[in-house]
Design a protein around this nucleic acid. Sequence first.
RNA 1: GCCGGGAUAGCUCAGCUGGUAGAGCAACCGCCUUGUAAGCGGUAGGCCAGGGGUUCGAGUCCCCUUCCCGGCUCCA
Length: 639
Amino acid sequence: MRVTLPDGTELELDDGATGADAAAAIGAGLARAALAVKVDGVLRDLSAPLPDGARLEIVTARSPEALWLIRHDAAHVMAEAVLELYPGVKISIGPPIEDGFYYDFEFPDGVTLSEADFPAIERRMAEHVKAAEPFEREDVPVAEALERFRAEDQPYKVELIEDLVRDQGVETVSLYRNGPFTDLCRGPHAPTTKTVKAFKLQSVAGAYWRGDADRTMLTRVYGTAFLSKEDLEAHLERLEEAKARDHRKLGRELGLFEFSEVSPGMAFWLPRGTTLFNQLVALMRELNEDRGYTEVKTPQVYDSRLWKTSGHWDKYRENMFVTEAEDRQMALKPMNCPGHCHLYAMHPHSYRELPVRYAEPGLLHRYEPSGTLHGLLRVRHFVQDDAHIFCRDDQILDEVVGCIELAFATYAIFGFDVKLELSTRPEQRVGDDELWDRAEGVLRDALDSRELGYVVNEGDGAFYGPKIDFHLTDSIGRSWQLGTVQMDFNFPERFELEYQGADNQGHRPAMIHRAILGSFERFIGLLIEHYAGEFPVWLAPVQAVLLPISDRHAEAATVMRDALAAKGVRVECDDRSESIGRRIREAELRKLPYMLVVGDREVEDGTVAVRRHGSGDEGSVPLDAFAARVADETAARSA
RNA sequence: GCCGGGAUAGCUCAGCUGGUAGAGCAACCGCCUUGUAAGCGGUAGGCCAGGGGUUCGAGUCCCCUUCCCGGCUCCA
């Protein structure tokens, strides 16, 4: 038999040869370094027989797949150690993930695991790694595997096998054994456990079996593994550095916002944070205005009647703050759409005026589960840069595409690299399937017309329509939704929205919900982490600070401050009797873009000595020139 | 909401197996009058998250509540 190597050369092998044989045929060094093979692009064990005519690639520590492989190995080694240290543990699944691996366990009653238990588990793992236990694959009939895991009292494995039989009709399953530990596993694995030299357990967490909140809560142990101790150390260091960018820490240090027990999940914005917030509101107003949106303002609290019309009372009430006044049931708005629909319906509309685009930086309240709150990234009180477009059928595609383009144009200002998701009809929904077919089709067409890549999240849409979401990851790799474009034929029906057509008849408009930043709160949280608190000039709450060298320069500096402020520069004057070194240090720590030192020379010449954050003294410039520079940078929203 | 872990001065954190709370920074008051990342001295500051219990005695042990952290489910 023969196989083809990545460089195109062909290799002649005995029939039944394995990946290991192939590696050995190429060279002894490669044979030693080989961890697995890729056969026609699929990762396989080194010990698996190769099919004739395969495209073959030897996977070594240098291959991109190597980390995935050894993290999977590490998960098995961890399960092995946990099973030994905690007899009676039930094992479920343990896959490699981005940056590491985890394994989900069910511990016996009364046993809880905490990070304090990690050293003992890690020690046991290290012993198994040192022993270089081979990973041995065995393909066994389903009946035998079931019998085995039933005998071992491993109900999760039994369930997994039963589901494989039911859903995929499998007749055999593969088991992997390392040392005394055997796991149901698709594989592949490295030849032995010895490649798992550099690993670390990181955290324990709860996780529902099969991600189902109605099922058992398992104990998930997260860890990571690398091919070398150096790589592991570097990774742990990166995590430490990421913590320094955490928006919750920077938000407090930079005096942007606070949280308090008296209002969980709702931010208190300090003056500087509010300035930042308002810059973004101004940006969105400008962008919206350029694209034909008109701003509206709608109420906070509505009679439950409105929420019954929209469907929120049925499908969304769990997430709403409900209250009572004058014997009426009222609720704070969790979304702006019903208010906007109601507003649209209050006046007749002609086909000539469509599309109607109502924008509103709308304050929303959502009663989010307590365990999900997370700094500014998940709150109960937030402002959405929301808009609703009411349009004719023939305008839908252009409008959806326009929203997508606005989103990309906006993210480009910040250098955000977003990922797209298309979410389709959920189980909890209003409207018939025909409307959903249409709505999902429009969104797909819009994405395809711009040749945009996206992943599909089946069943993840809003209860009134499918949506395109824009996602961004935070400093430690968690993904958060920013903007959204949602197609909706349901609300126009429920609110009986109409416009008068050229035929003088009433017609139903289509509706598009869209937010670009998503919420200002979440966006600012991500912005803080993105810039590590070093905001560009246009966003910086304080753009410059004047630093008079000594008390005798304070008056001149104060006059300069007022002059700059009059030209729109957000400026402070730090004339405390502290050393200039101290005041520069503090301004640097506050990450202020500009420090303006004023001494004898500057007072004399009407100049300031400009120091840019992070890059030192840039020399003196006339005060007016500095003001012009800041004005330019602010207007351009650059730098 | 669920699982696990936390909560000590404004901030970051000490406080061994129970014996009536400590540091650095910040703050405040002086002095210094300063040329590009910490000048010097002094003062004040805590119902140890809240509530119950065990104990002669609780920041320390137990229970409950609240909030926070890491995940899961859910979501902008």
